[in-house]
Design a protein around this nucleic acid. Structure first.
Length: 108
DNA sequence: AACATGACCATTA
DNA sequence: GTAATGGCCATGT
């Protein structure tokens, strides 16, 4: 039986990239998309995280390029995200923003 | 199929 | 520094 092309191929790929984010560091949506080999799908990263929230996926380590937690309109997961990040050592600045120069993940 | 929405990003003024 | 604009593309109606 032929393996049908998974419609979740993009989803799986993006989530795989999120799993690679080391503890104590954060990555931007665009960074995750590029790392997953799917540049330009920054928005879909948000869709992926919203659709799936598995334990293997440190979704809280994904933030926007501003170094802030993206607002999602519904749900209070933004508050939990900040708590989880601070628990890992990722501290927020005075403006409630993360210093990407310090905590931003730089894959080599 | 067309339209609207969205946990985004980069550029420009 | 903020504000506006265009691009990007999957999902749902």
């Amino acid at each position: 039986m032929v393996a049908k092309p998974s419609v979740n191929a993009l989803l799986q790929d993006l989530l795989a990239a999120v799993r690679l984010i080391p503890e104590g560091q954060v990555a931007t949506y665009g960074q995750v998309a590029a790392l997953a080999g799917r540049p330009g799908r920054a928005r879909q990263v948000g869709f992926a995280l919203r659709s799936v929230d598995a334990e293997d996926i440190p979704w809280h380590r994904v933030i926007n390029s501003r170094g802030e937690i993206s607002q999602r309109g519904l749900g209070d997961s933004e508050r939990e995200q900040r708590i989880r990040l601070e628990s890992e050592g990722v501290l927020f600045g005075e403006n409630g923003r993360i210093d990407l120069r310090k905590f931003g993940w730089d894959p080599e």
